[in-house]
Design a protein around this nucleic acid. Sequence first.
DNA 1: CCGCAAACCGTAAACGTTTACGGCACTATG
DNA 2: CATAGTGCCGTAAACGTTTACGGTTTGCGG
Lengths: 339, 339
Amino acid sequence: MAIGIKELAQHLGLSIGTVSRALNDRPDVSPDSRKRVREAAEALGYVPNQSGRSLRSGATGVIAFMMQTGHETTGQGDSFFMSVFDGVQSVLARHQLDLVALLCPSDENADDYLKRMVSRRIADAFILSSTQTVDPRITFLAKQGMPFVTLGRSQTDGGQPWVDLDFAAMAQQAVDRLVAAGHRRIAMTVPQDGANLGRVFADAAQAALTAHGLPFDPDLMIAALPSERGGYEAAQRLATLPDRPTAVVLIDPSHTTGLYRGLTESGLAPGHDIAVVGRWGPQAAYLSPSLTHFREDLFACGVTLCEALLASMPTYAEKYPGGLVRALCPTVLVPGDSA
Amino acid sequence: MAIGIKELAQHLGLSIGTVSRALNDRPDVSPDSRKRVREAAEALGYVPNQSGRSLRSGATGVIAFMMQTGHETTGQGDSFFMSVFDGVQSVLARHQLDLVALLCPSDENADDYLKRMVSRRIADAFILSSTQTVDPRITFLAKQGMPFVTLGRSQTDGGQPWVDLDFAAMAQQAVDRLVAAGHRRIAMTVPQDGANLGRVFADAAQAALTAHGLPFDPDLMIAALPSERGGYEAAQRLATLPDRPTAVVLIDPSHTTGLYRGLTESGLAPGHDIAVVGRWGPQAAYLSPSLTHFREDLFACGVTLCEALLASMPTYAEKYPGGLVRALCPTVLVPGDSA
DNA sequence: CCGCAAACCGTAAACGTTTACGGCACTATG
DNA sequence: CATAGTGCCGTAAACGTTTACGGTTTGCGG
C-alpha cells in the first residue's frame, strides 16, 4: 500500500537522492524537477517513512508532554491541560512538529516511566508537568542531555527553562484583598503531595501575612487532594478548626465545588460565613455565590512554554533568541461575591 | 552518550547478531551468552534504538489514542479518559506496548490530523474516541489497513471492533424509573454536534416512552454543549418550555453542575420541582440534592477496549481469540435524592 | 576414526531515509 | 580554445537494528 521513495524515484525516472532533496527543499535541484517531484508525491500519496527518516537524522519531529494521572490526582481538570496543549501546538505547527501526551499509568513510578519513554526515543524533547519540589525527572533528563522544559518550578535545577503560574502573586493578592476586607485569620488549601506550587504559595502567603503584621499559623494550611474531594475534606477541617478562620484561599481549581458543598453541609454559607478566593475552573462559573478567583491565560502559557523549549533546542534556537527562558504567567483577580 | 548494539557486542567480544538474539529471547543462543549479554546491557545502560528497530521490523510498539479537544468540547472531564487510559495501559503493559495520546488541536480538522499521524507511522494501531454518527476517520483507517478500535459506535462501519457505553440501557432505565415515579413529560439533553451517542440515546428514549404509552416530543430533546455551560443553557431552555417537563435526563456528566445552577437561578429546585437523572462525574458527588446517576466502570471499559484492539492485530490476535469484539460496557443506576 | 546432527555463532543483507561526494553538461571568462 | 565556475544530478555510505543463511565447533553413535 504505502510506497517508498524508491518507487517514487523510479516512477519519475530520477534518483532517490534528487527526490529526497526536492522534497526537503534543499538546493541543487532544478525548479522543474522540484515541481514534478512535488506533484508526483502528492498524486501517489507518498509520505516519508518516519522510522527511516529519524534513523538517519536522529530526530523524530515529536515533542512529548508527560502528565501524571493518579486516581485522585486528576488535578486541574482537563480543560487546563487542553488549553495549554492548544497553545503549545500553535507554536509547534510552525515547525512541522507534533505533540503527543504521555500518560503515566497510576500504578507506575513516574521516574521509571519517563526513563522508558526517553529510551524509546519517541520524542526529541519533553515537557514535564506537575513538578515536585524535589523532582528526579529533572536531573535525569538533564543528565541525558535531552532538551526539556517544565511547566512549574522545582527546587531541583537542571538548568532547563521553565514556565509557571505566578502563585506568589496570587497568594499576595488574595491576602491583600482579604485583609483589606477585615479578615485576620485566613486559611488556605495546599497540595498533599510534594508539588512545588504548594511551597511557593505557602511561602508567599506567609510573607504577605507578616507584611500586614499578622501571625502565620501553620494549622491554617490545610493539605488537600487536588480534586473535588480535597475541597470537601478541607471544608470539614475548616468547620472544626478552633477559632475558626473567616476566609479561605484555594490553591486548586477543583477544590471549589467540594468546598462549597462541605461548607454548606456544616451550616456555613460560602461568601457569608467564610470568604472564599479560588482559582478559575470551568465549573466555577456556575457556582453561587459567584467565586472571587484568579483567571489565567493558559493558551498564552502554552505558547511561552513551547517557545522556551524550542529556544533550548540546538536545531531551533536560532529562531528563538534570548537564551534561557524562565517565565511567570500573569494572572488576574476577578472579583466575585464570595470574597 | 547512548551506546549502540555494536559497541555492546564489541565490549562482549560477540557479534551484533548474537547480542540481538540474546536480547530478543530468540533460540540459537547459549544460556551463558544470554546471561552475559543481559548483564552487560544492564551495566552499560544499553537500550535499543527504536528508529532502527522499527525501520527493520515495521512496528513501533506504540498505540495511539486520539482525542479531540475543542474549546467548548472538553467533554466528560479528564477523569473519564484517565480511567480509560489506566485500563488500556494495564493491558498494553503485558505486551511491552505503550500508549500515547494524540490531541487534535482545536483549530485543525480531525480527519486531516489523523491522516498526518498515520503517515508519521508513530503508532501501530489507533484508538478513536468521540465517534461521530458519520465519521470519515473510520473509513480512512479501514482503507489504510491500519488496526484500530473505536470508543463509541458510529453509523460508518469500517469492520473494526468497538466498545461503547450502553446508552440505550441508560435511557431505558432512566425513563422506566421516572415514569414509575409518575413523570409524564421527560426532557433530555443531547449532544449538539454529530456525536453518535446522542442518536443512540434519543432512539432508546423514544422506544422506552412509547413502550409506556407516552408520546415522544422532539421539543424535549435539548441540544447542549458537552460542558457545564451546556447544562446551564439547558436549564434555561427547560425553564421557559411551554408545559414544563417535570424531569430531565442528562447525557453528559459535565451537564450536572450547570443544570443545577441554571435551575436554581430560575427558581426551580432540582429534585423537587424537576427530577434529574445524570451520569457520574467527579463533581456529581458533591451536589445537593445528591444525584441519581449512572456509574460506569471506566477502567474495565479500557481493558475491554484494548483487548478488542489487540484481537484485531495480526501480531497479537492469537493471544486474544474470539474474533471481532463489539461490546457494551454495563452501567448501574445509583439512586440519589434528585429523582 | 568417520560422519552426522545439534548447538551455537558470525556475516551480511535488508529496512527507508539523508547527505557528502564526485561527475557531467553547460556557460562565462580569459 | 582552454579553463574555471555553476547548476544539476546520480552514487553510495551511513543511521541501528533484525534475521536468513552458512559456518564452526562439539558430542555422540556407529
